[in-house]
Design a binder for these strands. Sequence first.
DNA 1: ACATATGGTGACCGGGTGGTCATCACGATG
DNA 2: CATCGTGATGACCACCCGGTCACCATATGT
Lengths: 245, 245
Amino acid sequence: MPKASRTFENLDEDKRKRVLDASMEEFAEHGFHQASVNRIVDRLGIAKGSIFKYFGTKEGLFRYVFERGVEVFGRRLRAVREATADADFFARLRAALMAGVEFIEAHPAVYRIYLKMLFQERFPLRETILAEVRAHSARYLTPMVEDAMRGGRLRPDLDVPAAVFVLDAVLDRFLQARAVEFMDAGLGLAGTDRAGLERAADACLAVLRAGLAGMGNGPAARNESQSTTATNAADVAENGQDGAC
Amino acid sequence: MPKASRTFENLDEDKRKRVLDASMEEFAEHGFHQASVNRIVDRLGIAKGSIFKYFGTKEGLFRYVFERGVEVFGRRLRAVREATADADFFARLRAALMAGVEFIEAHPAVYRIYLKMLFQERFPLRETILAEVRAHSARYLTPMVEDAMRGGRLRPDLDVPAAVFVLDAVLDRFLQARAVEFMDAGLGLAGTDRAGLERAADACLAVLRAGLAGMGNGPAARNESQSTTATNAADVAENGQDGAC
DNA sequence: ACATATGGTGACCGGGTGGTCATCACGATG
DNA sequence: CATCGTGATGACCACCCGGTCACCATATGT
């Protein structure tokens, strides 16, 4: 068991940021086991001993670095939820989705680490983090769906857990396809610009709204989540937390 | 550059199978880099030199082992597609989904390796395999959707690429949730039995069919993919390839 | 001028890795 | 019996890893 001195907190902010950024990048690129403390210190130009003075262990370094990222992400999503509390259901979905896109653009390393953790057993904090994310997702989507059903915006006979599962699957995959070109099943999400992303998001949300077989799509297609409501919600989401991102 | 003798092909089948199974399990558990040839040969009780005589490289071993798995999977899916060629659209989806579930149950190691490869850069064959899978998925779903639209079973104004994306997302996630408990967003897919899986699949397909907001769901809800058609299609899928699986 | 404290350093350690190769065991052939 | 070919073997190699620790640089207090 190595000593866990708290020396890192006393460092000046420039150096702290440099260390965190380099470590984050290394973990994002190589996962946990394949990441190398030697490479991190080489890239930083500091001695290996320093890292172990700061964090005690490679795992300690990872915990510190990653928890930072999760903290930032949580702050952002909470802001979006609050800001769109009284908007239309699909507008809220759209806002959450675009907030996710923006977060990935701002902090690609955090998201890449998250993706690696999903399917890589033996990752420190795996159980903790993933259970947290799952709970967060359920607590985020389920009340939104239930509210919208009470408000008559969704069909009253909707199977809520199944609907939440489908929503979660599509939203998640949308972000994954943006980040990992291979997850793209035909839409060009990985390479497109913001406008293309928004068009694709609208198309997917339209499918979710009216279904594949749903007939009589007159009203469903007309008040699609576009221009007014949706853009407004996305804008509102954008200024939620500027300092942090 | 190590020699690539073809000694492995001359071995008797028992030993070949033992070697392939042990290697597959090691890669499934540890991914590629973290997998250890030492552990494989220890578990097998053979000398390390033998493995390198057979496959030349750790990467050569992986290629051989994984391509075997992909081959089996492809055979299975093609059989299902043929067997359900003239069934209802959602019944075909259901059959493909349940065939995926069965494959994962029969060959969990192959699927675990595939999941690891998705988000782990620097995996041998990553580009090749994933591009193959993506192309396969697009070629599988898109014609099914287009046929169903021509036949009037899906709304005529459906955005095909978006619909395929949504379908791909939900089907994939369904299998992932079955395999990786954390991907479960509320349905209990990871721990349930076959009947529970089928119920969940029907619920998700119902959401996909009628959408979240689709009103006038009389006909959509009534001829849901249940009992008759769906079960029939799944049965048909089951006896597609017995010898291979 | 000296003592103290604090952060920084990098050679070093034990261990595990992918990969090599001289050697062996053994059956078939002359 | 001798020769040959083929597969099996495991000690060995160079390399990299996470982690340690005795030592150094500097600034401050007295």
